[in-house]
Design a protein around this nucleic acid. Sequence first.
DNA 1: CTGCAACTCGGGAAATTTTCCCAACAAACC
DNA 2: GGTTTGTTGGGAAAATTTCCCGAGTTGCAG
Lengths: 217, 217
Amino acid sequence: MTAPQTQGISILLVDDHPVVRQGYRRVLEHQDDFHVVAEADNAADAYRAFKAHAPAVVVMDILMPGASGLEAVRNIRSRSSSTRILVFSMHCEAAQVKAAFNAGANGYVTKGSAPAELIRAIRAIIRGEQAISDDIARVLALESLSPSGSALDQLGEREIEILRQLAAGATTEQIAANLNLSIKTVQNYHYLIKTKTGMRTDAQLVRLAVECGLASL
Amino acid sequence: MTAPQTQGISILLVDDHPVVRQGYRRVLEHQDDFHVVAEADNAADAYRAFKAHAPAVVVMDILMPGASGLEAVRNIRSRSSSTRILVFSMHCEAAQVKAAFNAGANGYVTKGSAPAELIRAIRAIIRGEQAISDDIARVLALESLSPSGSALDQLGEREIEILRQLAAGATTEQIAANLNLSIKTVQNYHYLIKTKTGMRTDAQLVRLAVECGLASL
DNA sequence: CTGCAACTCGGGAAATTTTCCCAACAAACC
DNA sequence: GGTTTGTTGGGAAAATTTCCCGAGTTGCAG
């Protein structure tokens, strides 16, 4: 199980800036079990390279011209659930990070992170863990402590009300009836709430609502 | 702060049975600082009377024809967070009691309780405490000690484990991977758990799991 | 020992929901 | 006046839920 693979870990490196790619390639290949098998400088090429090389790990900048890097992450994730995806970005915003994980990323580090942190993150996601760099951790931690509803202040009143009722156990139909909305609208809100908050299941939504004091048990 | 209010404590009394109301009115007005300012015999009238009289305390039976008494509790609670609501019922079941507190009740006594217990409960909730009668306390205490979570002993081990992971926020895929089952099997269990427990949404499942000590928040 | 009941595991197929796109409208804001 | 933001819903493909079924395994009572 834990024996190192003889061929090492194949990596696809994606960044629109060649110099940056060079830098990362050097850092990555300094690990002798890491092997950068391909590079790409845009989302479309990244997806093509992914299909061609089936790398174990994709390391990509999500800030690229053209199609969003997040879109590439989604594409790759929908094609393979086993590929590990590490996103790096200059952004250190909670929403951005959540969006990346929601799109299917396994890790997120900022470009300001030390090389050792990048390596550590890659080894973590290979083990199946989720990885974030220290500065991201700090931002997310502080955000979760903020006095406002943290994940809730990104939601509108309607969204909050619907989340509250969802967490209370109401069905889509009941909510639609309670608020005098069409089922379709409630479904759309339900989906929107999930994407905005980064929650993937209704159970996670309930936990969020309870944490934010929206619902009780 | 602790000085008795000169006008005493205003009470709204709700029960669908006139004779029962008479009995309670007598017991309540035997306390000279208690004053029953209104009565109602159904949920809708209760809510109207509440808006009209703004009583300090609402004493209501939740077992009434028509709209659920719980619904009335919720309505009153959403209108005023300071009003104290004491629920009384013939039922002495843990689930019923929890539902009442969840709806916003401050206290719960059974109809079998002695008058002194009712008075004690009202004085307790006026002080901002939560109050339950002795028999309720015994039921809740025993339930919390019982090895099986009541609604859970109708579930098999596999079902319980899957419910636990669902409540923890795991996706179907993650559960299937964790337990080495097919997604199809997890879906079937998920459905089976819902039908066996009578829960209609995943949010309700989470609540159930938490109540039964299967999950925490 | 035999049969029955319960638990575990999954396939099939129809029904429903989720997902993600889009557009319209109002209010707020620059 | 143009832009963003919140609210409301349609459409259509993808995914999940729902419910039915069978099959292997235990355990237990007859």
